[in-house]
């Protein structure tokens, strides 16, 4: 099979795109995380994210975060057009650093929670949610 110059270029372009697109999406997530943590190292223990394994409807996916002693928790959806979901800032009268809400997911993807703990360190937890029907309109 012979490739003309034009076909080769088109193939190369397509291949480059498939590499660049996921990288860009990840870069957006990394940027948001870096902005939240200020570039500090992120540990594993200290935050718990509860999300369903399979969500039938991506428009309302119930999630809960729990991070004992945390001052704030950032929730991200890595596969959404904009990765940010919400930031929970806990005040002095919060009985426990837990909160739950409902979020939109565009498709099957990782949901990430990053907590800023009382001692200033950061913890991360993530969970993959399978979405049957996406939640971003058409």
């Amino acid at each position: 099979m012979d490739f003309t110059r034009r076909e080769t270029l088109a193939l190369g372009g397509a291949a480059a795109l498939t590499f660049v697109l996921p990288f860009r999406a990840n870069a957006a997530v990394d940027d948001v995380i870096a902005e939240f943590t200020g570039g500090a190292a992120v540990g594993d223990a200290g935050v718990e994210l509860t999300a369903p394994e399979i969500a039938e409807n991506g428009n309302t996916v119930p999630i809960a975060v729990s991070a004992p002693g945390a001052t704030s928790v950032l929730v991200l959806a890595a596969g959404n057009p904009t990765p940010g979901v919400a930031t929970f800032n806990f005040g002095p009268l919060a009985a426990s650093q837990t909160a739950s809400t409902r979020m939109r997911l565009a498709g099957t993807q990782d949901v990430i929670a990053i907590a800023k703990l009382a001692d200033g360190s950061f913890a991360r937890s993530s969970k993959t949610v399978k979405v049957t029907i996406g939640g971003c309109g058409g």
Partner: peptide, 15 residues
């Protein structure tokens, strides 16, 4: 007058 919780929301929060 004392904060319990302060949540910043993005468009990914459901209707």
């Amino acid at each position: 007058g004392q904060t319990v919780i302060d949540i910043t929301m993005e468009p990914a929060i459901s209707t």
